[in-house]
Design a protein around this nucleic acid. Structure first.
Length: 506
RNA sequence: GAGUCGCUAGCUCAGUCGGUAGAGCAACUGCCUUUUAAGCAGUGGGUCCGGAGUUCGAUUCUCCGGCGACUCACCA
């Protein structure tokens, strides 16, 4: 009968505001007049988009549609409103004389945000808007909290929901009132689906490897630690799936990919979220050249299919994804943008001196190539707006990549930069267990010297390589950053539905 | 972790050179049977992020704290 609303307990949890109180009182009124404000189901026959499709000039096709009330214009004994479902909006036209006094009173009592079902016929108003002439109305879920009162005309939003913190914390509200938010996450979904289709069609199989790992390998990053009670062991949330995927290549899965979350216990910024989505793929009997082809082919095709063009606008820059993408070596790019030529620098001391001379900060622990990496990050990265494969990384920065045959100080590796950001990292996979063990030992030395991002020794991974891994190419692509590019957002938070925020106090 | 900026009604924002605050939208009450950022008339709504200090008096000034945005650091 009545709502049995416990005002006392509500007051305990928070101060109740007038708007919420009014709406809860409406629920009581509905119940008194036999209306269930939260009925169990509603059978709709059409989405709003489908309903628009059945419009005929000289017919009155009947439809039942359902969705959220987004606007309401009551003009005495007739009213207009807009109902929104996932497919779009539909104007409603309600007339007292056509739906009866009781039903029309219910209509007038609706609040913006209420979820309703409507039966009626599709027609076109004098102003030319296809609408549903309401004959029956069902309340499906009362919205007791007021929505931000965003209005819209000709695609322009007025008083849009602008509080970023609220938009991230209450993403459900943001999704209701901000069309771009909905569109961007639909685009994200399409990109991910497109990648799965592309790779599957190419003969790849999708696999899932451990998120909880005893040895967090495959990348240079600080991990999250957790604990398993029954086994009484500490585990790490994975920083990359790489070493497990390559175990599968050893096992005979020749084309595998995984498209899922990685976790890195590091800072949060417009480009970093502690959990983020990564595509990693490995192909036996391929190499980093194969990966270049896949990257430029897949990403440019996604753009063409999903954006309708291989060139796009990102934060004021025109970016052309049409293949082939430029290739340039790590050392050449540093020379081009900083004037420093690391191919002729012989000592760490010299490297430190010239780097400092152009304003790049170094530390005592850095070796020559780490200093070069720092110069690259400082002086080169931001300038790489158009897609470019940066190739020929130094071996010291690449503990999992295969060395070049012609110069073992460098490896068969590339990173893709677009819009000044690293999008991808790929290489010909190191499959020599002796070399890999030596690289791990080098990492362990760095770790013992205090570098907590250096990698840990993984004997089982060496063991796997000792069974023989076919030569293979592998690549990782940061999905969140790729989505940023496609939907033109400045912050990674706008591509992650629920980005990590500090919990609200109290 | 550091710096800058922000936090005022449900939302978007004004404002107070220190005297407990306003607008638009949303809400409520009327009027209005093809409107669409509907319109007209009226009404209600605030711990001005929290705490301390200075002051006769703090939303405003100072300090401490909270959360966020941005930049940097960190980070591939």
């Amino acid at each position: 009968m009545s709502t049995n609303f416990n005002w006392e307990s509500c007051r305990m949890s928070e101060e109740i505001n007038e708007l919420v109180r009014q709406r809860i009182e409406k629920i009581d009124q509905y119940r008194r007049s036999g209306i269930n404000p939260y009925p169990p189901r509603y059978r709709r026959t059409h989405t709003t988009e489908e309903a628009r499709g059945v419009f005929r000039e000289d017919e009155k096709p009947k439809v039942s549609i359902a969705g959220r009330l987004r606007s309401k214009r009551v003009m005495g004994k007739a009213s207009f409103a807009h109902l929104e479902d996932q497919s779009g909006q539909m104007q409603l036209y309600a007339r007292r004389d056509d739906m009866g006094e009781e039903s029309y009173e219910l209509f007038k009592s609706l609040d913006l945000g209420d979820v309703i079902g409507v039966e009626g016929f599709v027609f076109k108003t004098k102003q030319g808007e296809i609408s549903v002439h309401v004959e029956g109305l069902t309340l499906l879920a009362k919205c007791i909290r007021p929505l931000p009162s965003v209005k819209e005309k000709d695609g322009r939003l007025f008083d849009e929901f602008a509080d970023r913190e609220m938009r991230y914390r209450q993403r459900y509200v943001d999704l209701i009132v901000t069309p771009k938010t909905r569109q961007d996450f639909i685009m994200r979904s399409r990109i991910i689906t497109g990648i799965r289709e592309y790779l599957t069609r190419r003969g790849y199989i999708e696999v899932e490897t451990p998120m909880m790992q005893a040895i967090p390998g495959g990348a240079a990053a600080r991990p999250f630690i957790t604990h398993h009670n029954a086994l009484d062991i500490d585990l790490y949330l994975r920083i990359a799936p790489e070493l497990y995927l390559k175990r599968l290549v050893v096992g005979g899965f020749e084309k595998v990919f995984e498209l899922n979350r990685n976790f890195r216990n590091e800072g949060i910024s417009t480009r970093h979220n502690p959990e983020f989505t990564m595509l990693e793929l490995y192909e036996a009997y391929a190499d980093y050249e194969t990966m270049m082809h896949i990257a430029e082919d897949m990403i440019s095709k996604l753009a063409r299919e999903l954006l309708g063009s291989m060139s796009l606008e990102y934060q004021g820059s025109k970016i052309d994804l049409t293949p082939p993408w430029k290739r340039a070596s790590f050392v050449d790019l540093i020379r081009e943008y900083s004037g420093l030529d690391f191919s002729t620098i012989a000592s760490v001391e010299e490297a430190r001196r010239v780097a400092e001379s152009i304003g790049v900060k170094t530390t005592d622990k850095m070796n020559l190539w780490e200093i070069a990496g720092e110069v690259f990050d400082e002086k080169v990265e931001a300038s790489l707006v158009q897609p470019v494969f940066v190739t020929d990384y130094p071996r010291e920065l690449s503990p999992l990549s295969k060395s070049r045959e012609d110069n073992p100080d460098f490896v068969e590796r590339f990173e893709i930069f677009i819009a000044g950001r690293e999008m991808s990292n790929a290489f010909s996979e190191l499959n020599d267990p002796f070399d890999q063990k030596a690289r791990f030992e080098e990492q362990v030395r760095k770790r013992e010297a205090g570098d907590d991002e250096a990698q840990m020794m993984d004997y089982d991974y060496i063991n796997a390589l000792e069974y023989g891994m076919p030569p293979a190419g592998g690549m990782g692509i940061g999905i969140d950053r790729l989505v940023m590019l496609f939907v033109n957002t400045a912050s990674i938070k706008d591509t992650i539905l629920f980005p990590l925020l500090r919990p609200e106090g109290k």
